[in-house]
Amino acid sequence: MDGDVYVAPRYLAGSSGVGDAGFAPVAHWPHHHLDDGPHQLVVTSPDHRIRIGWAGDDYDLWTITAAPDAMSQPQWMAIANQNTPAELVGALTAALVQDWAEDSNRFLSAAGPRSDAVDPLIAAGWTIGGLDRGLLHINAPDGQAGATVDIIDPYADESITLWGGPAGWGTRAEIVFSSRTPPHLIAATAKAFTDPAPVPRWRDTLHPRLTAHARLAPVEPPQAPAPTPRDIRSRFSVRPPVPVGSVPRWSTTTPSALLPARPAARR
């Protein structure tokens, strides 16, 4: 367990600083550690049609693309910034692993209406907030997360954006999907935003503006205080010793009147 507190909702947990949770579903795929370029690590599907890049010191921390073949331009792209919890990215990479097969294009197919992409949010009680300059806004009940859908230009580079946390460079998490991203992959990511399970973090690394809205619970419950002598006596019902002088004792000088009568001799 990497952390001393659990954070909920998970979209307020911020980045853990490592990509373990995002890469866990693709741990069995080829890993490429790069010295040059914006991405320090690139994980690919076995046929290289799916690429997952991680830039440890960049604002756009994750870049995920899919193409019809290894040499083609990406058909769609998803970018997650440096504030995005890796657990949310992991929901997308897990869906890609489930979709990928050498003879399948499911991870490329945009079948189904775009509204399917945000269905998990509506099912979880998120509400439609209205239109603003061609963007449809969907808001979480606490107002600290949401989605924006470009309904004017369905082919926009930023077709659907999932976000969480207060606005600001160090607090707002964002995952941006391009227009041809299959709706079921966006839906899998959106569902992770509504997952009530908390995620572990180190308390000292959390941004104060996130902790102001999040619920924190210790990973290990606090230890009970050491018992006091009074607690021990009450627990085991220990009684104080009886004074020696109060214990009755018989001696050779005890008056015979106090001794038990001898039994009468048999005739």
Rank of each mutant, 00 (worst) to 15 (best):
Q40K: 14
W76V: 01
D132V: 10
V149A: 05
V42S: 06
G37E: 05
A111G: 09
W76K: 02
T63Q: 09
A124V: 03
D119Q: 15
D142C: 03
G56V: 11
D150C: 10
A95W: 00
V42A: 10
P38A: 15
P120C: 06
A80Y: 00
L34R: 15
S104P: 03
N81H: 07
I50S: 03
L135A: 09
D103W: 01
D103F: 05
L121C: 06
G146A: 08
A78H: 02
H137Q: 14
N81Y: 03
N81G: 08
D132K: 15
A91F: 05
E87S: 15
P38L: 13
G146D: 01
L136H: 06
W54P: 06
A111L: 12
T93Q: 04
D116F: 12
M71V: 15
L61M: 11
D57L: 12
H39M: 10
I50V: 15
G146Q: 01
A147E: 03
A70I: 08
S115M: 10
G37R: 06
W62C: 06
T148V: 07
L135N: 07
W126V: 05
A94V: 02
G37S: 10
D150N: 12
L92F: 02
D119V: 14
S104V: 00
S109D: 13
Q40A: 12
A55E: 07
N139V: 15
A95D: 06
L61W: 12
D60E: 15
Q98K: 11
I152H: 11
D150F: 02
T44P: 02
P113L: 05
V43W: 01
G143H: 00
L121T: 09
I151R: 07
G90Q: 02
I50K: 02
L96N: 03
A67F: 07
D35P: 10
P68C: 08
L34C: 06
A66L: 04
A67T: 03
A111P: 03
G90E: 01
D103G: 08
M71A: 15
L136W: 08
A124H: 07
